[in-house]
Design a protein around this nucleic acid. Structure first.
Lengths: 192, 192
DNA sequence: ATGCGAAATAGACAAATGTCGATTCTAGAA
DNA sequence: TTCTAGAATCGACATTTGTCTATTTCGCAT
């Protein structure tokens, strides 16, 4: 019934942690060979050396695993770079670049035609970062800062996604700069 | 293999047209009772009085049908309102309102928790409209107008989607105004 | 009206999905 | 160390999915 609430469950049980880590690692490995749609739950648990039933103990379906995996890995990538909001412009640039880089990181080198449903996992994370940034600085006058965060997050993901799907794309840094510049006025204008 | 190219096939054969229309209508009907994930291809063809194999003659899977259906219906809704680009501001407002209204139209009254993967069908249509508008007017100086169209389309959809998922939401017109105002500066800024 | 090509149907198939009950194993507390 | 809750395994199940090979039906041009 798509009640994907398990992954949010806080737990310290090493067995649970291990199983979930194994499943995520397994999916990450398989994603470098096949496309998401062509990977079965059986293959994932096989690679992870787990029973297939164990999979369903943690995730309602493979999309939920992808979502959980992406969230963890994208967060890691972002935190590895330690984005701070002391300089908002810099933070924006870093976040956009992070999205671009992650798209490459997660789906190996070959340009796949498939449009993996990553928006469900990346966008909320980006959104959260903007919410945090907005609550600290420029908490926008008349504008709903929640809506602002959502809108900008989608805009960035959409732009990055287009770039990623482009056959012979320019460098991630270049594209990130363009997207950031394009999106910036939304923040500025919001304050008056 | 997700080679969903059939729907793009131009045809005049009444049998093909009829089958596709039946399938779309059937899905639209079922969507008012169940969530997308809980509807099987068998149920769709059953409701449409067609053989299950016929389904696969037209669409590779049910997501492709949803995509095709959404594209057709969303385009209809937009064209029913006859958006023109004589006044860009007005066009932007109308497009945003169209997205908000369509989200309601497609998924009945009850607020479903499910996030139907509509972005794949609505966003490209919105994107196309902006591309058209940009090619006529303000074809942006230094900015890539393709990227601009994509980015804005995602921003709008993301905003509308957030609004749609909000428990007790404000009127579509009000939200559409807020989103349009938020997004507008992206266009203006692009020209210098 | 007749025949051709293509669309629709029918039935079958292997594989994948999501769920279940029963059993075994294990982390952490007593 | 022993005990226990619950995590993992196992085998099985009904459904669903996507694909096939006939076979039948139908639109349309001749």
């Amino acid at each position: 019934m798509s009640q994907a609430l398990q992954p949010a469950t806080e737990t310290t049980d090493p067995r649970i942690l291990r199983s979930r880590r194994m499943l995520m690692d397994s999916l990450a490995t398989l994603l470098k060979t096949r496309e998401f749609e062509d990977i079965s739950v059986h293959e994932i648990t096989d690679e992870a050396k787990l029973n297939r039933a164990t999979f369903y103990l943690h995730y309602p379906d493979k999309s939920a695993l992808l979502l959980a995996m992406t969230e963890v890995r994208f967060r890691e990538l972002i935190e590895r770079r330690g984005i701070s909001f002391t300089d908002c412009d810099r933070a924006l640039d870093a976040i956009v670049l992070g999205v671009c880089d992650y798209l490459i990181e997660v789906t190996g080198c070959p340009v796949k035609g498939a449009l993996i449903p990553l928006e469900g996992s990346i966008i909320p994370v980006v959104e959260g970062m903007f919410r945090e940034g907005l609550s600290r600085h420029g908490a926008a006058g008349g504008v709903d800062s929640e809506l602002l965060a959502t809108t900008v997050a989608w805009a960035i993901f959409g732009g990055a996604r287009r770039w990623f799907q482009t056959p012979n794309r320019v460098a991630a840094e270049e594209m990130a700069g363009k997207i950031a510049a394009m999106v910036k006025p939304v923040f500025l204008n919001g304050n008056q």
